[in-house]
């Protein structure tokens, strides 16, 4: 009786520990860290002393996600520099795909949401958004690399770029006062106007917070699900679970490829929409 009780307790303890280790393992994999986990060679990245500015502790240490961002940037630039031959009048092969995507972003995202004139102006920004986010998303699906867009700070920074663009170009285009007063729709009673103004400002912020959360949540969720399916094998301590786990894992992996494209597209479209709305306010 006693033995069995202790055995049960021990087993339960081990199980809970294992579950904990699985959880820890998952969060370890998706979280930012100061080292790049290459197999057998954990690469320690340089650490800088944090400094304080505006009451915030800014730690510019190179982290795993920073490196991933750099690699994504290098991949994007080399795609355009090495795979697109400018001298060819009609692009072929991979260059044609790149050009097709650029034309798609220009015509279906930029011009469709901003109009002819502004569309051409913002196409480089939107193309950069699309390719940068797409490559960063897809990098999480490559072994040894991780997704920098599953870090909320990265998506927040990208959404802040959109936010900055909406404010700067909105004010530039319409003037400071006219831009902010035109946030409130026409025909609002005078008494309600201050309230509507506050609501619209909140909405403006909420839109960009939603942009941040959408990309971050989508990217992190897929990885958690993927790791959790694999983790089931360890939790159940049985090879019998493996086919199911691996099957679902592969399914989620392909889903993730789809999600990577969709999220890059959605982020770009919404950025175009927001910038277009602030540059050409409705009247």
């Amino acid at each position: 009786m006693m033995i069995s009780e202790t055995t049960v307790a021990a087993v339960a303890d081990t199980l809970s520990k294992q579950e904990e280790t699985v959880g820890g393992w998952i969060s370890h994999h998706i979280q930012n860290s100061s080292e790049w986990h290459l197999p057998g060679l954990p690469l320690h990245l340089p650490h800088f002393k944090p400094f304080h500015i505006l009451g915030m502790e800014v730690d510019l240490s190179i982290t795993n996600h920073t490196v991933m961002l750099w690699i994504a940037g290098i991949i994007v630039i080399s795609l355009f520099v090495f795979f697109y031959d400018r001298r060819k009048k009609v692009p072929t092969g991979f260059g044609a795909i790149l050009e097709m995507l650029v034309v798609f972003v220009r015509d279906e995202i930029a011009i469709a949401n901003m109009g002819e004139k502004e569309g051409h102006r913002f196409t480089p920004l939107l193309v950069s958004f699309f390719f940068f986010i797409l490559i960063a998303n897809l990098m999480g699906l490559v072994p040894l690399f991780s997704t920098s867009t599953s870090n909320i700070n990265v998506t927040a920074a990208l959404a802040l770029v959109t936010f900055g663009a909406t404010q700067i170009y909105g004010i530039k285009q319409n003037g400071f006062i006219k831009y902010y007063t035109s946030l409130v729709p026409h025909g609002v009673p005078l008494l309600l106007w201050p309230l509507m103004f506050v609501i619209e400002i909140m909405g403006l912020i909420a839109k960009h917070v939603a942009l941040t959360i959408r990309l971050f949540a989508n990217m992190i969720a897929g990885h958690i699900v993927l790791f959790a399916f694999i983790g089931l094998i360890i939790i159940f301590k049985s090879f019998l679970v493996a086919p199911v786990s691996v099957g679902f894992g592969i399914f989620v992996y392909f889903l993730e490829i789809l999600v990577a494209f969709i999220q890059a597209y959605i982020f770009t479209v919404l950025s175009a929409l927001f910038i277009g709305m602030s540059v050409n306010p409705e009247h």
Binding site: L60, T63, L69, A72, P124, F132, N153, A157
Partner: peptide, 18 residues
């Protein structure tokens, strides 16, 4: 904030070069 700064730096460099 460090991560945000790094993202901006990387993204703007990519944007300008691209």
């Amino acid at each position: 904030p460090g991560m945000i700064l790094w993202t901006w730096i990387t993204f703007f460099i990519v944007l300008i070069i691209l």
